[in-house]
Design a binder for these strands. Sequence first.
DNA 1: TCCAGAGTTCAATATATTTTGAACCAAATA
DNA 2: TATTTGGTTCAAAATATATTGAACTCTGGA
Lengths: 201, 201
Amino acid sequence: MVSPKQDPPSAEGLNSVEAEFVAFFVQMATALSLPRSVGEIFGYLFCADEPKPFDEVVSRLGISKGSASQGLKFLLSMGAISTVYVPRDRRTFYEAETKMRKLFSRALQESVRPHLEANGRLIDAIEEHIDRSQDHESLEEHYRARAASLKGWNDKALQLLPLLDKLISVPVPSFPFKFFGGDSSGENGKPKTPPAKPGKP
Amino acid sequence: MVSPKQDPPSAEGLNSVEAEFVAFFVQMATALSLPRSVGEIFGYLFCADEPKPFDEVVSRLGISKGSASQGLKFLLSMGAISTVYVPRDRRTFYEAETKMRKLFSRALQESVRPHLEANGRLIDAIEEHIDRSQDHESLEEHYRARAASLKGWNDKALQLLPLLDKLISVPVPSFPFKFFGGDSSGENGKPKTPPAKPGKP
DNA sequence: TCCAGAGTTCAATATATTTTGAACCAAATA
DNA sequence: TATTTGGTTCAAAATATATTGAACTCTGGA
């Protein structure tokens, strides 16, 4: 399905393994309706063994500086990547967050929760409209019931968020019958040594 | 923020409560990156007290027949609405699924699971590429590790699906320390009586 | 101070998605 | 059989989104 071996050694274009990782995250991005370029960038950084500088993202992926800049900014804002400072190199290096738990957790907090909270406010608005308007006669009760159902589910979702957060850090094959136990795949306090001058051979 | 009272009695346009429900689901649809029209249609049907026919969806929402047809088809395919047969009326009537649990459950099965399964196949493809290609020297081990991490998380997600499904049917305020208990908000075997000739006054 | 490199911004362009509406089909009715 | 009604299809138009690339800013030398 994909062509033979022979990986271009570096510098321009991706080797076949990188290309597959990138394809994976492009598909992921598509599923989440994010731009392709975001998937490409994350995929490239995810499979890299060292932090990579801006210009390498641009040249290896063959995308424009503009796209790279915007995509990196977005990924930073999501907490999906972070910058790495490399002494004696003016460029900023980027590395992917590879702890999926963190990614997921953060998405829950930064994307899902705000949406649910906004929903809550919209539901309040609905209820106010039901109060304010007459000539619904028999419908008024029905409207109230529907609004209440919406509110119930929204609240439920909000309450489930922290539980979900706990759930994903439980080692799966043993189903979680006690929740607040330790996290198996926990943090390692590695002091984040910058790599020994990577990139630009 | 929204203008006074005085609801247009019917026939054309929405009353102010309907308008708010529709706005809510439009925002919901946007969050899920679905077309506005899908949100409008679902919102209209969700707040209706009886099943509504195609032509009313069109005229009340002021969208084209094409949009309505496609949106309804989509919502049917998601199981978010269903058709209702009304004797002595050629039109098909639609009603929203108001049991959120069903909606959610179904989305998990029909949308999330297939994506995860596709991901699994893509990860296999990555691993095959790692096998096939040489000249990665020291990188090969790193690639394998990254691929393994991906596979691990994907499998975990797949395993969590049924648990999630259970979770949402648990009454929330009492946290779930036993999972396989009964479902409080369970099915009611109502025999689905068609409404007494609604619509078209 | 000037220059070169790194990166950002943003208007223009390219792409993708939604919506419309006219043409069409099929079933019920005249 | 012809007509009307209910609804679908699909190509074209309208909108929305992503990408590019040229102009720009900023910083660190020389």
